[in-house]
Structures are given as structure tokens and as C-alpha cells.
Design a protein around this nucleic acid. Structure first.
Lengths: 326, 326
DNA sequence: TTGTAGGCGTTATCAA
DNA sequence: TTGATAACGCCTACAA
């Protein structure tokens, strides 16, 4: 493959001039510019970007750490990131880590290696301290609320979003609220549990361990939960489902099969505003996933461009979408 | 940042020896190896991978051309690709092209640029001839059936899969079959239309233009289709929905709301075996999406390793999953 | 088993 | 406006 030297020789100019043409630098006469462009055309030349990356110290690429790509929640964030990356002519290196810490570390090592210019950690198992050790090598954005750390963050306040959902149920008159949580040790599950307890306390309701259901992650789990409820002597009159509308969908479909009326027999509020929820008329808390991806990219892009290490912390707004399952 | 030269000087060895240690080459005495490893540790050294990429001409990365990342169909293929890439220690550069040809070309140019070692085109708007021009620069795998081309492919036979679905409905006694297609000009939509016509002809059924419905892409489209059916004087007794179970889900949910019984009043068969379909008991054609991602990666990986330009064409099997909407 | 030296293909520096 | 030359950081003949 032809290289810049060959182009220079054939066009009768120096390599510097070729480089200037390649990078649209000023101070190149039209004559030489066209001469260079012609030989580039003739030799079917393209730059070897690895050489460019080596000398500039930049790769125009960022990595995304994400546990799964085929879950709605994550896939929407990726879509937002990818959309902005396309606009900015940046590459997105997708690292599906399955929540494995050693894989997350490998990605951060890519930052040290100079393979990428920054890292977006959509969901991470690493401690904030461990992440901070890598901020020396380039900008890092985490899509979780971890407080005022040395790395940037984009997040929604899970405490507040969850309490809003609970308050909404309360305002509609429900006084026996059950709660379906996703991963029991997920990063925001403990904060939601605190929110739940606080809410019960504030509204003078007793805590009922039976109404606290863990490991609700799939449509099938949603259906399972409905059966669990049917077994109970003392049933909740409303359910808040934190890990996504698809779980609520599974539950609602099963409820229809069993003749349980929604919301008369059981009110349901979900999270994420998924398409299937729209179809079902599911009331939900929209937590702006596309916006999260977009913001994460913009923040990291800004920091790369300005070479600015100052961490940014952006809080996103959630909103309740009222439909007819509450 | 420290470089290999500095490590060599501090460890009292040559850069070659350091390089050998770095790459686990033989012929390094234990004494020198530990000396090198110690100074690497001491100086907190890592390789600059861009220099490695430059000199080796490889980047351990492949690009994925995909129109959207947050559609079930695509997200599952990505997950399969990502899973295998992780195992092989390869990077996945995700290029969400929104079906824009100029963006697809930019990705193929990355192959010329040596930024990546190969390209997986999950769905492309480019002509096979245009793609073939890039096979000179590295392996390309297309997840579409384009015949025996110069690039590799992984595919399911849409003609045959679709006819199987139709035949299944026919075998179950349905004689008035309607058809919901996705993008009217999608790569496989014309082949399915041929399959549809062939099927009607083979079973001596007339073609009814009213039962051919285009642009069914979302859950809402599915619901819309149900309303369309309700308007018809002459309704089909079965429906085949090619662009995914989520559309069938939208239709089924709307049918429940309207009191239309499935399958008594209307049988439905979908595609993709999505979780929401499992929940609804939807009969579907599983077209092995995860397997498609896995295969695509393995093929391209093999070709990169063996530096072998011989295109491979792998046909995947589909299978009908019988549940209770037919 | 070890080291020297050349090369990968670009951009940056500085002088002209 | 142009060009010679020095980086960038690594791998790899080839020689010892």
C-alpha cells in the first residue's frame, strides 16, 4: 500500500505538504494541492490511521462498558451514545462485560494503553475508588449516581424517582403497596429500599416482608409474581416494579389470563417507558434513557476536546407518564 | 509516560528483551525477565497499543455495521457478537448507521485505513458489488443471503422460513392467510412476497391485496393492523407477521381488548422468539439471532487469523416454536 | 540467550 | 508557502 512518502515523491512535493493537504491545513498553493490530490486518487491512497493515532495520541474512539446489550434499558442507552458518536465522527467500542469486574478493568486498561480516548461506564461493579485510579489516563463518565467523584457522571436520582412513583400510587388512594426489585444487590436497589422504607414510615404504613419481591428481571418473572400474589392471604392493592416495563407487561398479561382486573384489583406502575408498556397502557416512570446516552457522550466528548479533567455531574429528570394501570 | 526504551535502560537490558517479555517470547532468562517485570511494575508501564497496531498492521478490532441498536432483532445479534468478541479478546466497534449508505462506506473505509481487521455488516443498503470492492482490504461478513459472493455470509433462508410459517398455518387448517411485512423495501421483503405468492399458488388460493399489510414495525403498528382487520368485510383467519414478535404482541393485546379470540377468531404466527412472545404464548419462527452473531464473529475471526480470503457461506436453521396462537 | 539497528507511516518543529 | 528532519513507541531481522 502506498504511503505518504510515495505520494510526495510522485507529486513532486515534500511529505509535509502532503500531510498538510490531508489535514486541510492552510499555506498550500492550489497547484501543489491539486497535484497531491491527483496522485492520491491515482494511487488509491488512504492514511494508515494507526500511525496518526500513534503520533497524535488520540484515537477518536471511546469505549462503553455495559453488562448486557440485549436488554431494553441498556440497548436504549447504547442507541443514544451511538447516535451522538456518529454525529461527532467518533467510534464506539462496545464492551459487553456481563458484570465481570476483570473485564471492566481490561477496558480501563485500554485507556492507559491509549487505545481509546475515554470510557463510558453505563453500569459497573467497580468501586468508585478503583475507577478514580484511571481518571489520570483520560475522561471517564459513569451513568450512575456515585456522588461528587473524580470522574464525571450522568444519572437520575433513583431515590427520588422511586419515591415519586410510590407517592403517585399513594395520591391515587392505594395504601397497600408491594415492590418488585431487580437484582437484589444492584447499585440502586439498596437506595430504592431505603426510599421504600422512608415512604412507608412517612405514610404510616407497616412494612410487610411478603410484599417485597426480589429478582424480577424478565417477563416470566412478572408472570411468576402474579402467581405469588394470588397465593397471599393478604394482597397488596398496588405494585411498583423497578426493573422495567417488560416485567410489568409479563405480570399484566398473566393477570388478564387469570381474570385479575388492572387497576381495580391491582394497580401497577413500571419504569422505563418501553413500547410494550405503551401498548398495554401501562403507567410508568420515564427515566430518559436515550437522553442518558446522549448526555454521557457529550460530556466525554467535551472533556476530550478541551482536555479538561474537571468532572461534570449531570442529573437527569424523570417523569411519570400517566396511563391506565393506576 | 514511560516507554520500552526507558524500561530497558532501567532494567539493564535491551529493548528487544523487554519486547520479548511483553509478548511472552521464549529465550529470555528468568533473571532478566523478572528484572524487566519489576521495572515495568515500578514505572507503572503499559504498552502504547497504537504503536503495536502500526507495526503489526493489526488492531484486534472489528467493526459492526448495524442500522439500529435498540431493536430486539439487532440487539440480540450484537449480544452474540459481543459475547464471542469478549472470549477472543477482540474489540467490537459499533457503527449505528441508521441505514445510511454514506456511513456504511465510512466504516468500510476504516478497513482500508487499517483501523480495524474486519467488518460485520448485519444489515446493509449497499450493493454486493460495492461491498466486494472492499474485500481486498480485509474480511467482510454479511448477515444476509446474497448468494455466492466474494465476501462471507451468515444467513437464514427467508424464502424457506417464511414458507414454512405459511405451511404451518395451512397444515393447521387456515385457508385465509394475511401477511404483515416490515419495511416495504427491506432486503428480504421482496423474497417473502415471492414466497407468499408461490404459497398461494401452490395451495390454490387467490391473492387478496387487502390482506397484504406493509410497514408493520412497532407494537403500535400491530395494534393498528387489528383495527384494519376489523374494518374488513372479508377477514383473514390467520396472520403471519414477519418483522418480529413484538408486533404480534401489539396485535394480540389489542385483540384481547376488543374481544377477538386468538386463535379461534384469528391465528397469529410471529418471528424471532422474543420474550414477550413467550409470555403471550405466541407461536413463532425462531431464526437463531444469537447464533447469527456468534457465527458471524467466528467466521471473521477465523479469516483474520488464517489471513484467508476465501469467503465462507453459512446457512443457519430456523425452527417453528409451537405455542398457542395457531 | 542477548543486543543493535532499521522500519512501521504519520505529524510536529523549525528553519528557510 | 515549503521542506528536512526529528519524533511517536514498538517489533523484528540479523548479528553476536
Amino acid at each position: 500500500m502506498a504511503n505518504i512518502k510515495e505520494i510526495a515523491r510522485m507529486a513532486g512535493v515534500s511529505v509535509t505538504t502532503v500531510s498538510r493537504v490531508l489535514n486541510n491545513h492552510p499555506y498550500v498553493s492550489e497547484v501543489k494541492r491539486t497535484a497531491v490530490l491527483n496522485t492520491i486518487e491515482k494511487l488509491n491512497y488512504t492514511r494508515n490511521m494507526n500511525a496518526v493515532h500513534l503520533i497524535t495520541g488520540r484515537t477518536q474512539a471511546i469505549a462503553v462498558i455495559i453488562p448486557y446489550t440485549n436488554l431494553f434499558y441498556f440497548s436504549v442507552i447504547i442507541a443514544g451514545l451511538a447516535q451522538e458518536a456518529l454525529l461527532a465522527q467518533y467510534r464506539l467500542v462496545l464492551c459487553q462485560t456481563d458484570y465481570r469486574t476483570e473485564e471492566e478493568i481490561k477496558v480501563l486498561e485500554m485507556l492507559r494503553n491509549k487505545e481509546i480516548d475515554g470510557v463510558v461506564m453505563v453500569s459497573s461493579t467497580m468501586s468508585s475508588e478503583a475507577i478514580e485510579e484511571y481518571t489520570a489516563y483520560g475522561p471517564i463518565v459513569v451513568c450512575q449516581d456515585r456522588g461528587e467523584r473524580q470522574f464525571s457522571s450522568v444519572y437520575i436520582e433513583h431515590y427520588s424517582a422511586f419515591r415519586s412513583g410510590l407517592q403517585y400510587l399513594n395520591d391515587k388512594g392505594y395504601r397497600h403497596i408491594g415492590y418488585c426489585e431487580g437484582r437484589p444487590h444492584g447499585s440502586s436497589s439498596s437506595i430504592r429500599q431505603i426510599a421504600f422504607r422512608d415512604f412507608l414510615e412517612a405514610t404510616d404504613q407497616p412494612y410487610n416482608d411478603e410484599w417485597m419481591i426480589y429478582n424480577c428481571l424478565t417477563e416470566e418473572d412478572g408472570a411468576r409474581v402474579l402467581h405469588q400474589l394470588l397465593q397471599m392471604k393478604n394482597r397488596p392493592d398496588a405494585l411498583i416494579i423497578s426493573a422495567g416495563d417488560h416485567i410489568a407487561a409479563g405480570l399484566i398479561i398473566e393477570a388478564w389470563k387469570k381474570g385479575i382486573r388492572i387497576p381495580e384489583d391491582l394497580a401497577v406502575i413500571g419504569f422505563d417507558d418501553q413500547p410494550i408498556g405503551r401498548t398495554l397502557g401501562l403507567t410508568t416512570v420515564d427515566n430518559q434513557l436515550t437522553e442518558m446516552g446522549i448526555s454521557a457522550f457529550r460530556i466525554i466528548y467535551d472533556q476530550i476536546q478541551r482536555n479538561d479533567g474537571q468532572p461534570v455531574h449531570r442529573k437527569l429528570e424523570y417523569r411519570i407518564i400517566e396511563r391506565n394501570t393506576v
